[in-house]
Simulated scan of single mutants.
Amino acid sequence: MTPEHGHAGSRPHASKAIRLHDTRHTCGSLLAALGVHPRIAMQILRHSKIAVTMEIYPHVPSARHEKAPTGYPRRGL
């Protein structure tokens, strides 16, 4: 392993730089995945409106959503 190339066998400069915005988005996704209430996530992420939080991070279901029924049960058909 050499300092200028990172790990042995890797290409130099093969990885992308991590932007501050990327870390913020990761934080928001983790909060949603952990089931943190959207109002709390809004405060942690410093969003000015709950709508911003709900628009950006609705794609990560919490455990509560995964356990929820997906449809209505059929009745004696």
Rank of each mutant, 00 (worst) to 15 (best):
P3N: 10
P3E: 13
P3K: 09
P3F: 11
E4H: 01
H5M: 00
G6R: 01
H7W: 06
H7D: 04
G9E: 06
G9P: 05
G9S: 09
S10E: 14
S10L: 07
R11Q: 00
R11K: 03
P12Y: 00
P12L: 00
P12K: 03
H13I: 00
H13A: 04
H13R: 01
A14R: 04
S15R: 15
K16S: 15
K16T: 14
A17P: 14
I18D: 10
R19I: 13
R19H: 11
T23P: 01
R24Q: 13
R24T: 12
R24M: 05
R24Y: 05
R24A: 08
T26I: 14
T26N: 13
S29K: 08
S29I: 09
S29H: 05
A32M: 08
A33Q: 10
A33W: 06
L34Y: 05
L34W: 13
G35H: 07
G35I: 04
V36F: 11
V36A: 10
H37F: 11
H37R: 09
P38K: 15
R39C: 08
I40Q: 12
I40V: 15
A41L: 14
M42F: 10
Q43D: 07
Q43N: 08
Q43T: 06
Q43P: 09
Q43C: 09
I44W: 06
I44Y: 07
L45E: 02
R46V: 15
S48G: 05
K49S: 09
V52C: 02
V52M: 06
E55T: 06
E55D: 04
I56L: 03
Y57E: 02
Y57K: 08
Y57W: 06
P58F: 01
H59S: 14
V60A: 12
V60R: 10
V60E: 12
P61Y: 04
P61W: 02
P61L: 07
P61S: 09
P61V: 06
P61M: 06
A63M: 06
A63Y: 06
A63I: 12
R64H: 05
H65S: 10
H65L: 07
E66R: 15
E66M: 11
A68E: 07
A68W: 03
P69H: 00
P69I: 01
T70Q: 01
G71E: 15
G71Q: 10
P73Q: 00
P73Y: 03
R74W: 07
R74C: 11
R75D: 10
R75P: 12
R75V: 14
G76Y: 01
L77R: 05
L77Q: 03
L77E: 01
